[in-house]
Design a protein around this nucleic acid. Structure first.
Lengths: 147, 147
DNA sequence: GCTTGACCTTACAGTGACTAGAAGGTTGAA
DNA sequence: TTCAACCTTCTAGTCACTGTAAGGTCAAGC
């Protein structure tokens, strides 16, 4: 099976398979006499594993660890669970960030009539006081405001 | 005021200010005789606007549009609201994606005992059937599975 | 006048995870 | 033989910075 078929079977684009090989996530594929990469059932399994782990948001580096853990019959499940826990914590942080953005935006949108008139509370909000700031930086800034 | 002070007052790092200038998000700053960039109150305002819009997740290009709209006294608030609406839709898509990942991960974690034993449902889940797939690609893949 | 240190300048490389495109070689079927 | 559909490598682009190198400027203190 060459790269296109492996791509279709695994759901990982051919270009991405080459990329994964180039960064060492997967080992170099066997080659035909003319240089075409050759893949087998096991390679497709690996690619599918990678695809799934990536779709859960693990970084390529984390997928590398997961892959090593997957192949290591003596690993403890605690290690894997830890990786997953960190991933969930990361997701939670991102979701909280998005929720805050959403909150601010929808609030701004509610007060914007959104018609042909030019005054717009959204722009006013963006132009007003900082939405989030670092107080130490602001103190220093205040001292320089007179320049 | 030079770039460091403008950075502290606006919350945008000096390097990032230079970057914004280089990509044309903000106009080129005035310079002293020795080549130092000089900023005024209005520039800091602009930088702050940019900082806030970026923190709400607008891309640099979108911030450019927002900035143009901000400066255009004749713009309609509908345009701005549209940009905000699209941004909220984008946030919603991202949040849904994250929620799905979280769901899958926590489910996998629940069934993983996470101790020193080597069998791990998380890895099994990753190695099993695709978590999400494209049926057209899969049909084509099935035809090639025998290679 | 000189040194020191904090500031500033440019230019280039690197990040993550691909993705696009160019230029060319291989394969299998009509 | 010709053709499309594959495959190959290489380079560069994406996004929004961030890091680093190598050097110039400025103000204060000795």
């Amino acid at each position: 099976m060459n790269i296109g078929a492996a791509a279709r079977q695994s759901g990982v684009p051919a270009k991405t398979i080459r990329y994964y090989e180039s960064v060492g996530l997967i080992g170099p594929a066997d080659r035909t006499a003319s240089g075409y990469r050759v893949y087998g059932r096991q390679d497709v399994e690996t690619l599918r594993f990678v695809q799934r782990a990536r779709s859960l948001g693990f970084s390529v580096e984390e997928v590398g660890s997961l892959l090593a853990l997957w192949r290591d019959r003596s690993r403890s499940s605690a290690e894997v669970k830890d990786l997953a826990r960190r991933r969930v914590a990361d997701i939670d942080r991102k979701m909280a960030e998005l929720a805050e953005m959403r909150e601010t935006l929808t609030h701004l949108m509610e007060v914007c009539h959104g018609d042909a008139r030019p005054d717009c509370p959204i722009l006013q909000g963006l132009a007003g006081e900082p939405l989030a700031t670092n107080s130490a930086a602001r103190r220093k800034a205040a001292a320089e405001a007179a320049e």
